[in-house]
Amino acid sequence: MHPSTSASIRTILPLALVTGVSMAAMDLYLPAVPALQLGMGISVPLAQATIAVYLAGLAAAQLLWGELLNRLGPRRCMEVGLALLALTSLGCALAPNIETLLVLRLLQGVAAAAATVVAPSVVRATLADADVVRGIAAISMVEAIVPAAGPVLGALMLTVVDWRGTFWVLAGLSLLVLPWVVKIAPRQLPGLNLAHDASYAAILRNRSYLRLALSHALCIGALLTFLASAPQLLQHALGLGSSAFALLQVLGVGSFMLGASQSGRLAKRLGHARVVRLGASAQVLACTLALLGASLGHLPYAAVVAYWMCFCGSLAIRGPATFVDALAVPPAQMGRATAMLILALLAAGALGTQLVAPFLGGEGSAVPVFCGVLVQLLASAALVWRYPAPPAAR
């Protein structure tokens, strides 16, 4: 094995694992929500609030960890984040009432946000250019697997433990990966120069970063918009149930993993600009065809599956290259740049989901969903069609 390949694996694997553990705090927990409701004797809205406050903490803490990355360094951020994730998981497992659980779930979201900021920053800053796309792709693969496998594993766990057992497992996983991640995370980002202007204003003045970050955020926003709307779309427009959505998820994840396994090789062979344009074109074409079928009143399930597989596979090809080029900023800016990028994609997903939500529930719901997705994809493609030079990382 080539030395650089071995070094990249030692860096990527622990960071991918810690990303997976952080995401499991949501996806492993989801099946336990009804059991929590019954166990605590609370209402459905209160039980669902344990999901909402976690997401609120995750989103709000992006900027917090972006600030702390330079001040504490990647290693200390990972130590604090994973330790807090373990402690809050233990607290959730022992929570005596819903009020305590809600506070701890909020803090759990704050803890999980450390991985979303630190992991890609470390990969971008420490790996050679030949390995960095592959590193981001590997983390993306974990981010695709956990939402698909987490609820299944969580449901299986509930056959042997109650809802509190989910949090005991999360605490154990956090402590298990902590020593490994701390060992490979650098004390500070390589080349860090704190004299460099790392203000948000300076980052936003970088037009290349802005275009690449917005393009990636809109692409992920399109994904989240469709994903959040798909269960209602399948039920009301196609008359299908949860099993159809589950199959759609499995096929989408499989397509993403296949694309991600090739993204590094394609980026090296074709160049980042061509790979991103290729992925964006495929997504726009697939969505346009799906919208046309929906407009004609004939959209079979097979067409939805074909669209989703094309979308996910194309995202896996274009996404890592876009993400890597967006973060080609000075190390002093990397934490804040990553935080703003993650926050932007979460916001795009939330906004897109809410904009199409009023149109769901009828037989024609497929048309507004695909319209909303297509608008985001067209804007995303337009931002990178004349591919901006990656931000200078001086």
Rank of each mutant, 00 (worst) to 15 (best):
G41A: 04
P45N: 12
P45L: 14
P45W: 05
L46N: 03
A47Y: 01
A49P: 00
V53A: 08
Y54V: 00
Y54C: 06
L55Q: 06
G57Y: 02
G57F: 00
A59P: 09
A59F: 13
Q62S: 09
L64S: 05
W65A: 06
W65C: 07
G66Y: 02
E67H: 15
E67S: 14
L68T: 06
L68D: 10
L69N: 11
R71D: 05
L72A: 08
L72Y: 12
G73H: 01
R76G: 10
R76H: 14
C77F: 09
E79A: 15
L82I: 08
L85C: 01
L87E: 04
T88S: 13
S89I: 02
L90I: 10
C92Y: 05
L94P: 07
N97I: 07
I98L: 14
E99W: 11
E99M: 03
T100D: 03
T100E: 08
V103D: 00
R105W: 05
R105M: 01
R105T: 00
L106V: 02
L106E: 00
L107F: 13
L107Q: 06
L107K: 08
Q108R: 01
G109Q: 05
G109E: 05
A111E: 05
A112L: 11
A115M: 13
A115N: 01
T116V: 07
T116F: 07
V117F: 04
V118K: 01
V118Y: 02
A119H: 07
A119K: 00
P120H: 01
P120G: 02
P120L: 03
P120Y: 01
V122P: 00
V123S: 01
R124V: 11
R124H: 05
R124W: 13
A125V: 02
A125F: 01
A128T: 12
D129Y: 06
D129E: 15
A130T: 15
A130V: 07
D131G: 08
V132M: 13
V132F: 13
R134E: 07
G135Y: 01
I136T: 15
A137M: 07
A138Y: 07
A138I: 03
I139W: 00
E143V: 12
I145T: 11
I145Y: 05
I145A: 11
V146F: 12
P147H: 11
P147W: 09
G154S: 14
A155K: 13
L156W: 14
L158W: 11
L158E: 13
T159M: 12
W168K: 10
V169N: 15
V169E: 14
V169Y: 09
A171K: 06
G172M: 05
L173T: 05
